[in-house]
Simulated assay, not measured.
Amino acid sequence: MFELKRYVSRPCKTWATKSNYMKPFEKLIAGLGVLAITASVALTACSKSADTAEVSDEVSIYLTDDAGPFDNVFVDIRYVEVKVQEGYENKEHEGDKDDDDDDHFDDNDKDGDNDNKSKDQFGKWDTLSIRPGVYDILKLRNGVDTLFAKGRVKGRVRKIRLTLGRENSVVLAGTAYPVLLHPGINNYVYIRTLNRHHEMLAAKHIGFWVDFDISSSIIKDGSKFYLRPVIKPFCEKQFGKVQGKLVAADLHTFVKIYNAKDSGAAIPERSGEFKIRGLNEGTYKAKFVGVSASRLVDTTINDIKVVKGKETIIPTVTLRR
């Protein structure tokens, strides 16, 4: 757990001036004036505080995986922070006008402008509690997730920021390879969040799921592997999921669900079962592809309907050589 340092303001010193030596009557008049101003400021401050009173929300972030064709993918995660817009509350997506405005609030808040910053005009960064270290992302596939980070914030969560370490690697066909950060990017990963990306788990407790898209995040260039993280936020209520089962001569198979705007992927379990979460509503295709030297014939299924908050079941698929 990381300790969030707080900065405490120091009292100002009072310096002697001519006003310290005024005559008693002048001091009385001046004192009454100061008292009136102080009372006015206090009333204004109390009114403002009542109008923008904030109650802290508990935030939970769950990590899951959109699988890729590897044995293991190890990602080193050191910090998780959330960018909070103070004075605004976290609420569930209702499809109203306020939500439309929310979609464009921070269009000018560029990710690169946040590097090494604790706050700006769009909000401040709060550090959440996590277990820093290396995560085997592929263990979090087919509907599995883990409580990844948690904490309390005052205000609306606008972005999530991950800070990556250097101990990143993949295992492919039993051989481990180091994974470097892709040229041109640093160790910060930003995830923009909207109202539809979280749900209320309980009163004043919001939950996000972040889907690490391994197949898009790991890039092979010659004999080297690079990491360019692609992470998608979602929640169960506002996104759909697809579940199915694969029967094949062997299970070295990669499943991809896709349309023109969205996609997801899975590697079936030994039982052949798979699940893909965090899909936007729409009509998708499912493609089943044999990896390595499996020599399985690729199969595509069309017209898969995905509905938010629902699970779509695909009929059992059989692949043959």
Results as ranks from 00 to 15, higher is better:
D100M: 13
F122W: 15
T175L: 01
K97C: 06
R152K: 14
A16V: 15
V8F: 08
R158L: 05
P233S: 00
L162C: 08
V84A: 01
I77G: 03
D262L: 00
F74D: 12
T52E: 06
T175W: 05
A202S: 15
N259C: 03
S56I: 00
I218Q: 10
G309R: 01
W15Q: 14
V41A: 11
V134L: 01
C12G: 14
G133Y: 06
S9P: 12
M1K: 13
G123A: 02
N90R: 01
S271N: 14
H198S: 09
S40A: 14
N116I: 00
L319D: 02
D71Q: 04
S19L: 14
N186T: 10
T14V: 15
A249L: 08
I29A: 01
V171G: 02
D76Y: 10
P268H: 05
N116V: 00
L279D: 12
R320N: 13
N280V: 07
G143A: 03
I257M: 09
D120F: 01
G133V: 03
N168P: 09
D120Q: 02
Y258C: 00
D100A: 13
G143K: 02
L35Q: 07
I301V: 15
T38Q: 03
L181I: 06
Y7H: 08
E58H: 12
Q243V: 14
R141M: 08
L246R: 03
A45S: 11
H197N: 15
A260L: 13
G184M: 03
T318Y: 05
G155Q: 06
T318D: 03
G151D: 04
Y88A: 02
S56A: 06
G309P: 06
G264V: 02
T52V: 04
T312K: 01
F105R: 13
V230R: 11
E54A: 03
D65V: 02
M200P: 09
T299N: 10
Y21L: 10
L128K: 06
W15G: 07
K18W: 15
R196Y: 11
S60D: 10
R158G: 11
I29T: 07
F225L: 02
T17H: 08
A249Q: 14
T14R: 12
N20F: 11
D262Y: 05
G87V: 02
G133H: 08
D103Q: 06
F74W: 14
D262E: 10
R321D: 07
F74P: 04
P229F: 12
Y226C: 04
F212Q: 11
D120L: 00
M22V: 13
L140K: 08
M22R: 12
Y258S: 13
T175V: 13
L35W: 04
D65Y: 01
L180N: 15
G133I: 01
Y258P: 10
W15P: 08
W15K: 15
A249Y: 09
V291C: 02
H182M: 12
E269W: 05
Y135M: 05
K91L: 01
K241D: 12
D115V: 07
I314R: 02
